[in-house]
C-alpha cells in the first residue's frame, strides 16, 4: 500500500502559538481519511501544510511522492470550507480559470466542465454569472472546481454544509465514484455521522496534537462498550439518584448514559423503578468520543490562520 500523504513529526508555530505539534500521519493511497477536531485545533493548518501553502517549522511533509515543494499541487483538488467564486464571472469562465491554474489546458477543461455541469444538473447555468446562483448551486460549482483537474488527492473541507438532501446525495455519489476510481480523499468535517459513514480512517487533532488516528472500528473499540442507550416510559427521573450513572446525551426520544459497573445491574435497578422500553449496550459514537476529548473547552475559538 502506497502512501498519498506522509507527515513526519511536523510542528508549526505562529509567533507564540503552536498550531500543530509533533504531528505524524500517513494517509494511504485510495483511502477516505476523516479529519476531525474542534475549531482552531489545527485542522486548517495541517491541510495548508499538505498543500505546501505553509511550511512546517520542523518535520517533513510528503505529498504524492514529492516533499517540500508545490510540485504536487496540480494533482491536488481542494475545496476550502469557505467558498470562493468570482461573482461577476460566468460559471464556465470561473471553472475554466480554476482548471487553468491547475495546469489544465482550456480545451480539455471545457469538455469536462460540460460533463460535470450536466451531471450536477447545472447545464443551463453554464453561461450565467455566479452571483445569480443559489447557495447550493454555488456549492456544487465549487465542488466541480475542486475535482475538475482529475486530482489524485482531493481535500474536502465540509463538502456538505448548506446542501439540501437532493444536492447532498448528488455530491455524495460523486465522492463515492471518485473514491472508486482510486482518488485519495481527505475529508474534514464537524459532522460526525457523515465521518462515520464515509471514512475508512479517522484522524482527530485537538490543540495541535493528534488525539485519534485509525479506523473507526479500532477507535471505537479503544473506548469499549460503555455506552447504554435507553428509553424509559415517562420521565427520566428514575435515572436520578442512581449511583454510577452519567448522562451523556439526552436525545429526547432516548437517552445515552455511561454506567460505571455491570450494565445488567443498571437494568435491574431501572426495571424495579419504571418500565424500560429500550435498553441497548453499545459502543460510543464518534460524536461522543469527540465530545469526551474536547468537552473541557469547546468554546468557539476562531479558526486561526
Amino acid at each position: 500500500m502506497t502512501t498519498a500523504v506522509r507527515l513526519t513529526h511536523v510542528t508549526k508555530t505562529f509567533g507564540a502559538h503552536t498550531a500543530v505539534e509533533d504531528l505524524s500521519l500517513e494517509v494511504p493511497t485510495g483511502s477516505v481519511y476523516g479529519f476531525i477536531g474542534p475549531n482552531g485545533s489545527g485542522k486548517t493548518t495541517t491541510i495548508r501544510m499538505i498543500l505546501h501553502i505553509f511550511h512546517p517549522d520542523s518535520g517533513s511533509v510528503e505529498v504524492l511522492g514529492t516533499a517540500t515543494s508545490r510540485a504536487a499541487n496540480d494533482r491536488i483538488g481542494y475545496l476550502p470550507e469557505e467558498r470562493g467564486l468570482y461573482k461577476k464571472m460566468t460559471v464556465k469562465r470561473v471553472l475554466t480559470y480554476y482548471a487553468g491554474l491547475k495546469g489544465m489546458n482550456t480545451a480539455d477543461a471545457r469538455g469536462l466542465i460540460d460533463t460535470w455541469l450536466e451531471r450536477m444538473n447545472l447545464g443551463e447555468w453554464a453561461n450565467r454569472k455566479v452571483e445569480v446562483l443559489s447557495k447550493g448551486m454555488a456549492q456544487k460549482i465549487q465542488f466541480i472546481s475542486a475535482v475538475l483537474a482529475r486530482p489524485e488527492l482531493l481535500i474536502l473541507d465540509e463538502p456538505f454544509s448548506g446542501l439540501d438532501p437532493v444536492n447532498l446525495e448528488v455530491i455524495h455519489e460523486a465522492i463515492v465514484e471518485l473514491r472508486q476510481r482510486g482518488t485519495t480523499i481527505i475529508f474534514s468535517t464537524h459532522d460526525m455521522a457523515t465521518a462515520e459513514k464515509m471514512c475508512d480512517s479517522i484522524f482527530m487533532i485537538y490543540k495541535g496534537r493528534k488525539v485519534l488516528d485509525g479506523t473507526l472500528d479500532s477507535i471505537q473499540s479503544r473506548y469499549g462498550e460503555d455506552t447504554i442507550r435507553l428509553r424509559l416510559n415517562g420521565s427520566v427521573d428514575p435515572l436520578k439518584g442512581l449511583e454510577g450513572v452519567t448522562l451523556v446525551r439526552d436525545q429526547g426520544r432516548y437517552q445515552e448514559v455511561r454506567y460505571a459497573g455491570d450494565p445488567q445491574d443498571l437494568l435491574r435497578a431501572l426495571v424495579a423503578k419504571t418500565e424500560v422500553r429500550l435498553f441497548e449496550v453499545t459502543r460510543p459514537s464518534l460524536h461522543d468520543i469527540f465530545i469526551r476529548i474536547a468537552r473541557p473547552e469547546t468554546g468557539e475559538a476562531a479558526d486561526h490562520e
Binding site: 501553502i53 491536488i76 481542494y78 476550502p80 468570482y86 480554476y98 491554474l101 465549487q142
Partner: peptide, 11 residues
C-alpha cells in the same frame, strides 16, 4: 470572498 484560498492552493 475567500477566493484567495482557492487560488493559493493552485499558485
Amino acid at each position: 470572498q475567500k477566493i484567495s484560498e482557492v487560488l493559493i492552493s493552485a499558485v
